[in-house]
Design a protein around this nucleic acid. Structure first.
Length: 747
DNA sequence: CCCGTCAAGGTTTTT
DNA sequence: CCTTGACGGG
């Protein structure tokens, strides 16, 4: 059977498991997508289940598209009957099919994070909330956290005034969303979860329908997602969970690795299959990764191996500065391209946080090397696109006050804050939406508002019978957005993007009906509006590409987080410094996991480093800098503990490896090939020369402290007896010490 | 209503 | 350093 060819014994065992729940521990590069798709194809091909009996869930749209694509190359079936998608996409699909049972309007809209925040700001204005005392973002966080625990306002325990207030605001927010017919991301999940709980017939229908449920990146599931899976699969449920605890890097947003162990208990899992053979990286890369991750406690346990050769050793470079680090990278990139025949897109530069890309970009730009940065605004998040979508949403659901507020005076049509305030008061008092409120308005300001309403009504009329793309085009034109941006000197790109939105609508329509479970009883009116509604859901659930313009062959720049799931022949992991990677907020800190339990934050950083390392197929370069510009200040960092956790035998130091303290001043720092030509500027401050108290340890020097061990002097503040020194003690974190009290020794 | 200035603050991110 | 958000004048 061709399906099962090219599978190793463990992969084969996983793919052909009988109908029972199983946990597949799939290491980086071990062929996890292959196993997931082959399992689905095998189940269907052997007649154990029809396409309609399969549900597969992923975290990103990219992953689910990839899965669908691979399945369709393996099997000549209609993949549309399968439920393959993200948690949010599948919940949306379910809620669209059962909107009435879920207590939602048929044309409910989905709020993305931006929309949710503006909805809350709008609500705060109406309720006269002091945003100094209660920042809107904190409510967003509070609500998401509550929903992810499956808690409605009545279920949240509040023990102090602040939390009681948050609960009241959560309640008010829910009421507002319900009135406006909108749901936020977590609401999609919670609503779907509650629907399955409340409606036994529906629950049993889905439980018997989805004979096989498959979950990708199981280590990233949060509490609510786990319970949703449990409820959906039911007592006879069969869940095939694929994940890697060592690649769990999203605890900060609620992911709960402990779900893996809980899953084994709750589902009485008999089979834990480990996929440890790696098909991506050379031996030295895997040795480094294994050795590093072994420092974490409580792992499920796994060791990657390969049949490939050792490959090059990991090259490690200690830079004098961030500039120097960039210069080293540029030089190596040139070698890789010119002498070793790699193309630019084979090369990735990874860093811990986005701010680090600046120096690298500058250096690449100066060297005229094309590059592409991942991260930042995505297509459907752009302001002009959000505006256009707001008009479309108003056609679809006139009660969407968020959208109303966004475009009622954009482009400007003489509707000021005063008019909106009056309208808002009226609408609040009547308990109706802004759009409906306009009809009840009287007096002068009402005229321009009524004109706006008429515009929307006219659009709705003119758009009748049009295809989706024509509809979008028409609305953009009639909204006055194009005209508005034509007047704008920098509006050209925005007009381009609006045209692109029409294209997006066209290709969305071309991909044919998005949901196959639509009841076949649509009226003409519903038929008109339904593709639009589907498109709007799509726009909210899939924000689009977040990479800078896809030019030619380019070097890839991204955070270690963004690199998860990707692979490159040559990888540079940069900024391996205590305080950068691991990030300073993680050092000496534990963090809250999805269930409120405390987890070691440095361990998550270590897993992130593990992810970064395992992106490399052939060549891996690791670098750190003694000093770098951060928040407008030069900061001094010790070399990262993660560097010292890599096995000596796979490392080749390009600069002399130094004993414990990373920095001993820069006089001897540029000993390597690159130090001398580094674009290293400034002396790092501290020598201001005014009437300051003498500073016994120059910034950048190594010192030792009886309790904290060795560290690097970072900064000073105060004068005389009050003179304090800031020292980066690496694993002990950053400390401010009184020079007069702390017994420091130069190292 | 638009644009300027100033202060604040600054991990990681998908849906 | 550099971006984002909040105010006040033209």
């Amino acid at each position: 059977m061709s399906l099962l060819e090219n599978l190793n014994p463990e992969q084969l065992a996983a793919v052909t498991l009988p109908r029972e729940s199983a946990l597949i521990l799939a290491g980086a590069g071990s062929g996890k997508t292959k196993v997931l798709t082959a399992r689905i194809a095998w189940l269907i091909q052997t007649g154990q289940v029809g396409p309609g009996g399969v549900l597969a869930v992923t975290f990103t749209n990219k992953a689910s598209k990839e899965m669908l694509h691979r399945i369709s190359t393996m099997l000549p079936i209609n993949t549309r009957a399968m439920w393959v998608g993200t948690f949010h996409g599948l919940c949306n699909r379910m809620l669209r099919a059962h909107w009435k049972d879920a207590g939602l309007p048929q044309a409910f809209q989905i709020l993305d994070t931006q929309d949710q925040l503006s909805a809350i700001k709008r609500m705060f204005k109406v309720l006269n909330i002091d945003t100094e005392k209660f920042p809107p973002k904190q409510l967003v966080y509070f609500i998401s956290a509550a929903k992810e625990q499956g808690l409605r306002p009545k279920d949240v325990e509040a023990h102090d005034e602040y939390h009681r207030m948050m609960v009241r605001l959560y309640e008010a927010y829910e009421a507002q969303c319900q009135r406006e017919g909108v749901v936020d991301f977590s609401e999609l999940l919670l609503r779907s979860f509650e629907l399955l709980g409340a409606n036994a017939a529906l629950r049993e229908h889905y439980q018997s329908r989805f004979k096989y449920i498959l979950v990708d990146e199981f280590q990233d599931t949060n509490t609510l997602q786990y319970h949703w899976l449990k409820r959906l699969s039911g007592p006879q449920g069969c869940i095939f969970a694929v994940g890697d605890d060592d690649q769990s890097i999203y605890a900060f947003r609620g992911a709960r690795v402990a779900n893996m162990a809980q899953f084994e208990r709750d589902f009485d899992v008999q089979n834990r299959i480990k996929l440890e053979q790696n098909y991506r990286s050379v031996g030295n890369v895997l040795k480094a990764a294994n050795h590093l991750i072994a420092n974490n406690k409580g792992r499920l346990g796994k060791e990657l191996w390969t049949e490939a050769g050792e490959g090059e050793p990991l090259r490690v470079y200690e830079a004098v500065s961030d500039q120097d680090e960039a210069a080293f990278i540029i030089d190596r990139i040139k070698k890789l391209i010119n002498e070793e025949g790699y193309s630019r897109s084979d090369i990735a530069l990874l860093y811990r946080s986005n701010a680090q890309s600046r120096v690298l970009e500058q250096a690449l730009f100066n060297a005229a090397i094309p590059y592409r940065v991942y991260g930042g605004l995505r297509f459907f998040e752009r302001a002009e696109i959000k505006h256009a979508l707001a008009y479309l949403r108003l056609l679809d659901n006139a009660d969407d006050d968020n959208s109303f507020s966004r475009v009622v005076n954009f482009p400007t049509r003489g509707i000021g804050a005063r008019s909106i305030e009056m309208l808002q008061d009226l609408a609040t008092q009547q308990g109706i939406s802004l759009f409906r409120g306009v009809r009840l308005m009287e007096g002068r300001p009402a005229a321009s508002l009524q004109k706006f309403n008429e515009l929307i009504e006219r659009m709705r009329f003119e758009v009748r019978g049009l295809g989706l793309a024509e509809l979008v085009d028409k609305v953009i034109e009639a909204s006055g957005l194009i005209e508005h941006f034509q007047k704008d000197r920098e509006g050209e790109d925005r007009i381009e993007n609006l045209k692109e939105l029409v294209n997006a609508a066209a290709s969305f329509a071309a991909a044919e009906g998005y949901y196959q479970d639509k009841p076949a009883t649509e009226t003409d009116e519903e038929k008109l509006i339904s593709p639009l509604n589907d498109f709007l859901s799509h726009a909210s659930l899939e924000a689009g590409d977040n990479a800078a313009a896809a030019g030619q062959d380019a070097v890839q720049l991204m955070t270690a987080h963004a690199a998860k799931g990707l692979e490159f022949k040559c990888v540079f992991v940069t900024g391996l410094e205590e305080g950068i990677f691991p990030h300073e907020n993680s050092i000496g800190n534990s963090m809250q996991a999805g269930d409120g339990a405390s987890v070691d934050a440095v361990e998550e950083e270590r897993r992130l480093m593990y992810v970064a390392i395992t992106r490399a197929r052939e060549q891996l370069f690791i670098s750190h800098a003694q000093q770098r510009m951060l928040h407008g200040q030069i900061r001094y960092h010790m070399r990262s503990r993660f560097l010292d956790e890599l096995p000596e035998e796979v490392i080749k130091w390009l600069t002399p490896k130094r004993a414990h303290v990373a920095s001993q001043g820069w006089n001897n720092a540029g000993a390597g090939d690159w130090g001398s030509n580094a674009g290293f500027s400034g002396n790092g401050g501290g020598y201001g020369g005014k009437k300051t108290t003498p500073r016994p340890y120059p910034i950048g020097t190594g010192v030792a402290h009886a309790r904290f061990g060795s560290g690097v002097v970072v900064a000073y503040e105060g004068e005389g007896d009050e003179l304090r020194v800031q020292i980066n003690f690496g694993k002990q974190g950053m400390k401010w010490l009184m020079v007069s009290l702390a017994k420091l020794e130069k190292v």
